[in-house]
Design a binder for these strands. Structure first.
Length: 282
DNA sequence: CAATCAACCTGGGTGC
DNA sequence: TGCACCCAGGTTGATT
């Protein structure tokens, strides 16, 4: 669940409580979600380290450590990262805990267990993050760069938006919301988008993500911020999980289809299959 | 390059 | 109640 707005909310909330603090104790309950070293080795290498900076890239949470290494956490679908008083009652599905010199405990919990923790050096960090596409809210991401990226791609636009090497941070909820906002059918081929559509897509990406960040993310089920609180953007979703319900703009029942194995929600009237100016080959 | 599928896990909802 | 089945916010690798 955690997509860019949720990870951003977690990171910006926790940063003041983590930056400059030292890890005095580390425990892991689920060795297989670690990456390279054994659980014991993983903990040993982390204990005593000081967190220099908490950062985000795409959906990745990055703990930059004083040693030059980084702890990378990906929450996948059900991961949570919550700061608790050290004596707080146990959380379900706890996979790792990090005791800080402030007396607080950072807890990583994950029901489905798809989340990943990694301890990496600078080179490996660069390799992993280098595979990601542009940050959609950064100055590097422009209408022109998006147009260039779309130009030669035959793929359908929805799966392309989910591709983290195309643009970093969009997931299934926001991809659908963005395409509705831009009035583009999720099955449109990327290279068939005309300039006006590319521009709408660009501003839809920025607007949808920014709005969700202002609302501290979307909580359907397991998402919580860094302090265990739900977000509120679920009240503002226009299409996600609303199949059969009327479109807020035109009243037509919204539809659901499967694209790239993912549930996809859209309005058949507001997001028609072909634009009036571009046609699909074949 | 594009598309599909399976895999990693657990839990909730639905329909029989 | 039980059970089978489908669904779920993500990512990766194999296959065609």
């Amino acid at each position: 669940m955690p997509e860019l707005p949720e990870v951003e909310t977690i990171v910006s909330g926790l940063a003041p409580y983590l930056n400059g603090h030292q890890l005095v104790q580390v425990e892991l309950w689920e060795p297989h979600c670690i990456g390279e070293p054994s659980a014991a080795e993983f903990c040993r290498r982390l204990i005593g380290q000081r967190i220099v900076e908490l950062a985000r890239r795409g959906k990745h949470i990055i703990f930059r450590l004083a040693s030059g290494e980084s702890l990378l956490i990906h929450l996948a679908m059900t991961g949570q990262l919550i700061l608790r008083p050290a004596d707080h009652p146990p959380d379900p599905f706890l996979r790792a805990s990090f005791n800080l010199d402030s007396g607080q405990q950072l807890r990583f919990a994950d029901g489905r267990g798809f989340g990943v923790l990694r301890l990496v050096d600078e080179e490996r960090l660069g390799t992993l993050l280098g595979r990601l596409g542009p940050e959609p809210l950064s100055a590097q991401f422009t209408v022109a760069s998006l147009a260039t990226a779309l130009k030669d791609r035959a793929a359908k636009i929805k799966p392309l938006l989910l591709d983290q090497s195309f643009v970093a941070g969009l997931g299934n909820i926001y991809a659908d919301e963005v395409l509705f906002c831009a009035k583009i059918n999720p099955q449109r081929r990327a290279r068939t988008l005309v300039p006006g559509e590319v521009q709408r897509l660009y501003y839809a990406i920025r607007e949808v993500l920014s709005a969700s960040i202002r609302n501290r993310g979307t909580t359907f089920d397991t998402y919580r911020d860094g302090f265990g609180r739900p977000g509120s953007h679920q009240a503002y979703l226009r299409v996600y999980q609303r199949a059969g319900a009327p479109c807020y703009d035109c009243g037509v029942p919204l539809r659901r289809l499967r694209l790239g194995g993912r549930g996809t929600y859209f309005c058949p009237r507001c997001q028609p299959e072909a634009s009036t100016t571009a046609s699909e080959p074949r």
